[in-house]
């Protein structure tokens, strides 16, 4: 069964592609590796900052999943193995084998469902691991991966302390335990705005569990926990996967609310957990120079960033550029060899 490793970022320019590239470079057997992107990997220059972007270089034998218009866009020679019945803005998706090493441009499945369908199609090509490169701050398609790498850094926030607090919240939410519900639960689809709360009778909730299948935004969730705190016994809260919690709009507040809820005796968990393998950090950020009206390359103190983040997180923190390819690779290999939760 293919192990799916996602590399998601908290923002643009946090080092997703660099992390992906470090794994590709270190990978010992290209034929066992497939790579795709939930966005578009191939720009030489960032379309907002005008600064250069890292590129993906694949070696002969690797498998890639990309869109039709990207097939000849890089220097690598790709052999089409299969056309998928999936469309993205750059055309139909193809599974290809790299016939001659070189740069590739990737625009792969861009939703959770299409990523699932793609994985199913990859089964027959003897792929052991699929690396799913993220896009910007997008997380939703990563809901199906077995192991997740979160890339964060100065591009997200130049305040290292705040960055560490956010990373802690992410770690906490991603590590929520798996809960299996044995008894009937109150099923809730989406809590996007406070008005959605009226659909359900939370104040009179007699269920032992409330199961959320959709999206939960921080505002209605805050109101919900206030309401539930009035109930004689706190129902357990089960989310379909932790990624949905990361999209709530305020990670710090969400982690505090859940901690408080648990402290008051509530049980909170997820139906499908996923493993956070590593948090990678990138001290680089594009600084806007008002005088020249252009972005310039800037860096925070890498040592300070690494030590602060490492001291706050249980998850291994890796600065890919400074620590080299091996650090991240070893973590991924451990996961591939059986430590992934899925």
């Amino acid at each position: 069964m293919i192990k799916k490793i996602g590399i998601a970022g908290t923002a643009k320019n946090t080092g997703k592609t660099t992390a992906t590239m470090s794994l590709i470079s270190r990978w010992p057997s290209p034929a066992s590796l497939a790579v795709t992107s939930i966005g578009y990997d191939g720009e030489e220059i960032d379309n907002v900052t005008n600064l250069p972007k890292p590129r993906l270089h694949l070696t002969t034998g690797s498998i890639v999943v990309t869109a039709e218009k990207c097939l000849n866009a890089g220097s690598a020679v790709l052999e089409k193995l299969e056309k998928l019945e999936l469309q993205v803005p750059l055309g139909s998706l193809f599974i290809c084998r790299v016939r001659r090493s070189g740069l590739v441009v990737l625009a792969g499945p861009n939703s959770k469902k299409t990523l699932e369908q793609t994985v199913a199609c990859l089964d027959k090509y003897n792929v052991r691991v699929l690396l799913v490169d993220g896009a910007l701050n997008r997380l939703a398609p990563m809901g199906i991966v077995d192991g997740l790498i979160i890339a964060t850094g100065a591009s997200r926030n130049t305040n290292i302390e705040e960055l560490a607090q956010e990373a802690q919240a992410i770690e906490f939410l991603l590590n929520l335990p798996q809960l299996t519900i044995q008894e009937p639960a109150l099923h809730v689809t989406n809590l996007l705005i406070e008005r959605n709360l009226k659909v359900y009778s939370f104040a009179d909730c007699t269920h032992s569990f409330i199961e959320f299948s959709g999206m939960v935004d921080i505002k209605p969730f805050t109101r919900l926990t206030e309401t539930l705190s009035q109930c004689p016994s706190l129902p357990g809260l089960v989310f379909s996967n932790p990624i949905k919690l990361l999209l709530c709009g305020d990670l710090l507040k969400m982690s505090l609310l859940i901690r408080d809820y648990c402290r008051e005796g509530g049980n909170v968990g997820v139906r499908s957990p996923l493993s956070l393998l590593s948090v990678t950090i990138n001290p680089f950020y594009p600084l806007y120079n008002k005088a020249n009206r252009e972005f310039v390359k800037s860096w925070l103190d890498a040592d300070e960033m690494w030590s602060t983040m490492s001291s706050r997180l249980k998850t291994p923190v890796v600065d890919v550029v400074r620590q080299g390819e091996d650090a991240l690779y070893q973590l991924v290999m451990e996961a591939v060899n059986g430590k992934c939760q899925n």
């Binding site: 997008r138 997380l139 999206m215």
Partner: peptide
């Protein structure tokens, strides 16, 4: 700057809401 993230989050929310 930042608008890409805003739009990406919109698509993510659609996905997470089961609408994508």
């Amino acid at each position: 700057y930042g608008v890409e993230e805003l739009l990406a989050r919109f698509v993510d929310l659609l996905d997470a809401a089961g609408l994508r």
